Amino acid sequence: MADQALIQKAKKIFENYLLKQGSRKTPERFSVIDELYALPEDEHIDVEGLFLKMRNKGYTISRATIYNTLDLLVDSGLAVKHQFKDKVALYEQALTYKHHDHHVCNQCRKIREFSDPKINEIKEAMGREFQSYITSHSLVLYGDCKVLNCENLPTHS
């Protein structure tokens, strides 16, 4: 069940962002927020997946509108965009975002999120070494699936 208070907060932030940018507030743009924030917090979705999900729910929206809206959501801090290896861009909601890193299986393509305090220690040590305040980082680990009978592995016929 989607957190309606969270969705309303995201819409208010987006509305203020659009006003500052001088951009139009269209129902289609706000419907993208509805659908992105209805996903589980740890789910990543691409434009095509979001397009199909919205079409199946009866929305009349183009892929271009979804692309453009997601770009605006990233710029406004309401979405995070990830580009994993050979995958298309994936998006996740950012309002409740807690920094995490990712593991991507080379075979089954499953994306898993993880956090490890040792990574922050390394980030702080590198900041000291380079005399820099590290503001962000991205870590993606790629591995091969060893899960027996993994339901995500592609079948070869």
Rank of each mutant, 00 (worst) to 15 (best):
112 R>C: 05
38 A>S: 15
19 L>Q: 10
92 E>F: 04
94 A>S: 14
93 Q>A: 15
138 S>G: 14
100 H>T: 10
77 G>H: 07
67 Y>L: 06
69 T>H: 01
142 Y>T: 12
124 E>K: 12
77 G>E: 08
35 E>R: 06
3 D>Q: 08
1 M>V: 06
136 S>C: 09
44 H>N: 12
95 L>N: 11
149 N>V: 07
145 C>T: 07
16 N>Y: 08
16 N>Q: 14
29 R>C: 05
71 D>N: 11
147 V>K: 08
79 A>Y: 06
139 L>T: 13
82 H>S: 12
127 G>M: 03
37 Y>W: 08
90 L>N: 09
83 Q>C: 10
22 G>T: 03
148 L>C: 05
1 M>T: 11
35 E>K: 09
106 N>D: 14
148 L>Y: 02
75 D>A: 15
151 E>F: 04
64 A>R: 05
18 L>A: 06
102 H>Q: 08
1 M>S: 15
3 D>M: 03
62 S>F: 01
92 E>S: 14
94 A>H: 12
110 K>A: 09
54 M>E: 01
60 T>R: 13
71 D>V: 09
123 K>D: 05
74 V>G: 07
34 D>P: 02
67 Y>N: 12
60 T>D: 13
156 H>A: 05
86 D>K: 08
135 T>Y: 02
57 K>F: 02
90 L>S: 14
29 R>N: 10
97 Y>R: 14
34 D>R: 06
117 P>D: 11
40 P>W: 10
27 P>R: 11
154 P>N: 09
27 P>I: 07
140 V>Q: 10
140 V>M: 11
66 I>H: 00
17 Y>S: 04
131 Q>S: 14
87 K>H: 12
151 E>K: 12
100 H>M: 14
71 D>H: 05
107 Q>F: 15
99 H>F: 15
14 F>W: 02
10 A>W: 09
127 G>K: 01
61 I>Y: 03
31 S>Y: 00
138 S>R: 09
54 M>S: 01
128 R>N: 13
34 D>L: 07
132 S>E: 13
121 E>K: 14
23 S>W: 03
93 Q>Y: 11
157 S>V: 08
106 N>M: 13
98 K>P: 04
51 F>I: 00
134 I>E: 05
64 A>T: 12
102 H>A: 09
97 Y>M: 10
30 F>I: 09
120 N>V: 08
92 E>H: 12
62 S>G: 13
120 N>S: 11
13 I>E: 05
134 I>N: 09
21 Q>E: 13
67 Y>R: 08
6 L>A: 06
109 R>P: 00
11 K>A: 02
147 V>F: 05
146 K>Y: 04
14 F>H: 01
16 N>D: 15
81 K>P: 03
63 R>C: 02
37 Y>K: 02
45 I>T: 15
71 D>S: 12
131 Q>M: 05
56 N>F: 04
19 L>R: 14
44 H>K: 07
110 K>Q: 11
88 V>D: 07
92 E>D: 07
129 E>I: 10
17 Y>A: 03
119 I>Q: 01
43 E>N: 07
102 H>E: 07
27 P>C: 04
37 Y>V: 04
85 K>M: 13
15 E>L: 13
95 L>S: 09
26 T>C: 04
120 N>M: 12
150 C>P: 01
143 G>Y: 11
99 H>M: 11
93 Q>F: 10
156 H>K: 10
15 E>C: 10
97 Y>A: 06
151 E>S: 15
143 G>I: 01
82 H>Q: 09
23 S>T: 03
71 D>I: 09
86 D>M: 07
71 D>Y: 06
